[in-house]
Design a binder for these strands. Sequence first.
DNA 1: CACGGCTCTCGACAAAAGTCAAATTTGGTT
DNA 2: AACCAAATTTGACTTTTGTCGAGAGCCGTG
Lengths: 321, 321
Amino acid sequence: MAIRPAEQLIHKAAWLYYAHGLRQDEVASQLNISRASVAMYLRKARETGIVNISTSTQLFTDDVVARKVEDAFGLDAVWIAPENAYLADPSTDIAVLAASVFLELVKKGDRIGVAWGRTVYTIADIMSFADLQDVTVVQLCGNLGAPYSYRPDQCTMEIARRLNAKGLNFYAPLVLSTEELAESLRAEPVIRDQLAGIADCDLALYSVGAVDADSHLVKCGALTPAEMDGLRSQGAAGVIAGQIIDARGEMLDCSYNRRVISAELASLRAIEKRLMVVQEDTKFEPLLSAIAGGLCTHLVIGAHMAGRLLQYAEAASKKAS
Amino acid sequence: MAIRPAEQLIHKAAWLYYAHGLRQDEVASQLNISRASVAMYLRKARETGIVNISTSTQLFTDDVVARKVEDAFGLDAVWIAPENAYLADPSTDIAVLAASVFLELVKKGDRIGVAWGRTVYTIADIMSFADLQDVTVVQLCGNLGAPYSYRPDQCTMEIARRLNAKGLNFYAPLVLSTEELAESLRAEPVIRDQLAGIADCDLALYSVGAVDADSHLVKCGALTPAEMDGLRSQGAAGVIAGQIIDARGEMLDCSYNRRVISAELASLRAIEKRLMVVQEDTKFEPLLSAIAGGLCTHLVIGAHMAGRLLQYAEAASKKAS
DNA sequence: CACGGCTCTCGACAAAAGTCAAATTTGGTT
DNA sequence: AACCAAATTTGACTTTTGTCGAGAGCCGTG
């Protein structure tokens, strides 16, 4: 990377420009360099996280609907991206919101668990940079081969890079061919330590997957569409960190789950802040299961999904009374 | 202030521009308003603290000298503004740095004590805006009349305004004419509560004053130059929140101090983070006294002052050995 | 209902910031 | 010492942003 004096210059330029409010040409003459260089330094400063530009996500929690969802499902905080008037692509809006919320939740010294999926990767991709030297980002589940562009380790590393944090990868496959092999691999010191360290996280970031042929598990070849169907008829309701959960949010008792190397649900529940982000409206049932299983304390969803959740909660409470 | 829909628009504009990275004209067409309005909304968003632009103060603590000062005086953190190559007015640089450091130290839910003086007011004046709704800013000392533009309550209120926080003022004069009156006023429930609440603060912001005719105490008429001289010969070494301290950083035993309504030193010491900012090089002795009295855990000073502190510490350790 | 007084909005211009290819410096290697 | 490759810097150009006065809309009041 850049050597010492360059770092220094970037910092000085950022300081004069953002803190003192000088114009770029003023900064340039102060530092005896051209204005173009100043512009470049400033871009680097933003990319390095030396300067931080963050917008409050207040408005998205202030929403009445968000409050209702919090109450109905006993969640700590809910953010709702208004799907209507905003952007062409609503799912981008959810990801941008999720990235902001994530950065708001991260604190110095934190240990962060990151799972895997299109949603998580999208978030990592649009997340702005920050300078959190003493943060550790740990991978929550084993790796999957290359056919897909967003692999578990990539999610972890990309987020670590953006935060200027340490990334801790999982050097094991997500799923193995026999239960015995998975068992012995889990007993390996390297893997065991990594798994044990998950419960020590302060914050987790994941989504929940649907149990259908579109799932990453199918696309990556971990499961065939037929196997997926079979699991569904056995009660599979969602996918968390590469593992199949049932409607109560508990691990489904099946061979696949026993062959997987990933975070135990108990470890995930031990994490104080569990940020779940759901982009697709089709993931209603999986989300319900995850909430039921206590796998989520903080939630980022779209307006439509929020509506469905509320509708469901109201129906449930009516039936109860 | 602005009504609801306007707030909403500001927020949306800020969101699309800063979080999504759209251009102003794109935001304008999204929201069906002119680009000029977008520019105006964005300015308001910055002024309201809906968007936060902060630059890391890392570089100023990373300094070797800063480390040495920390070690020599047992301080938690020291920031040094390099006085040479930067700006025309070095004292502005210290204030800007102090404001950034202050904003970095403030956390949600904090209670902040603010004292009074030119330094504090300068910091308040250049501090950028933030949106910390659940923060309380309390005034550390009684009020002084109007001849001066920066009164204690103004310092408090201005900082509260910038943070979008609650301001808690002190409705009592800083200094009274008799000790008896001060005594009874301190016993008043309103005042007593305020004084008692100071020890509950999480963060304090103050400077230290010099004991000379330039002091605010003299300029505001609380003391005459002659009285000031007298106090100095009695051992006065500095001014903290309107009170006179001696070289050990303890309250000087004098009539003036007994007539003052202000935070007790013990309350100040009970505050976890005590951020002291010193702009003028002439305040070397007062600063030493304040440090000696444990009135400061975090320190923002200029390079020259840092040099003098180190020189002093080295001389002291040499004598000791 | 017409009249100020008020804020909000817009168009046009000026100022500032971003970009890119060419030139220059830097650091390392033969 | 000479050379090359990579990184840095710059000037010239384009795009984007800030600003200001004019005009439009919106009350409460006489």
